[in-house]
Amino acid sequence: MLLEINDIHKKFGSGDSEVQVLKGIDISVEKGELTVLLGPSGSGKSTLLNIIGGIDSADYGYIAINGERTADMSEKALTEYRRKHLGYIFQQYNLIPNLNVKENIEVGAYLSDNSLNVDEVLRTLGLYEHRHKLPNQLSGGQQQRTAIGRAVVKNPDILLCDEPTGALDYNTSKEILQLIESIKTKYGNTIIMVTHNSAIKNMADRVIRLHDGKVRENYVNTNRVAAADLDW
């Protein structure tokens, strides 16, 4: 087991405005799995992803990656944890605006001792021709591909994707999903993808459905379909 999520509780606010976002989440993720976290808005899926990513902390419970608990880590150790194990993809891409495509990916490569070849990643992502462009000269799909490149180039154990297609149209979304799928196949990363698009669950190895801060469903998807065949 690569990732163990144990009895995670998280609340925001206090007094009358207190909201219990996560109410005891227990999940295990195996190495090389593509896990889709599904749920409506406010179900706590992004909060859970942030806790897994070490950019937010749980009030109770713990996350362990290869048996190493993040709750026990100092800020420095958390930085090292993210640096060593994680890649992050956001809905809004969060590219560095003053770096070109290649440089954005190199920012990710810099962090790893066994990073992938940047040019090869650029070609895999279909961005080689655009490598000298700034993010604002790219379409949304190209920007998200760059963000994926930045995340995968350091060859992380776990790739965290927070609504990676949330800001994209249908065709571009499918392109991005195919890309994520091909990366998993090519580089063998473990992927946790947060989405509210239930059609995406069909490409997952494991599906976890959150509702009101609790796990409502957690099953292995035995009828996986290729990303190219998804439809919604």
Partner: peptide, 22 residues
């Protein structure tokens, strides 16, 4: 916004290029 990025020699390390971009 729409200006092209100035090309920087990729032999310069990414940290230095990043700094130059800033």
């Amino acid at each position: 916004k729409r200006k092209k990025a100035i090309r920087l020699n990729s032999k310069i390390g990414i940290q230095s290029r990043f700094r130059l971009r800033v």
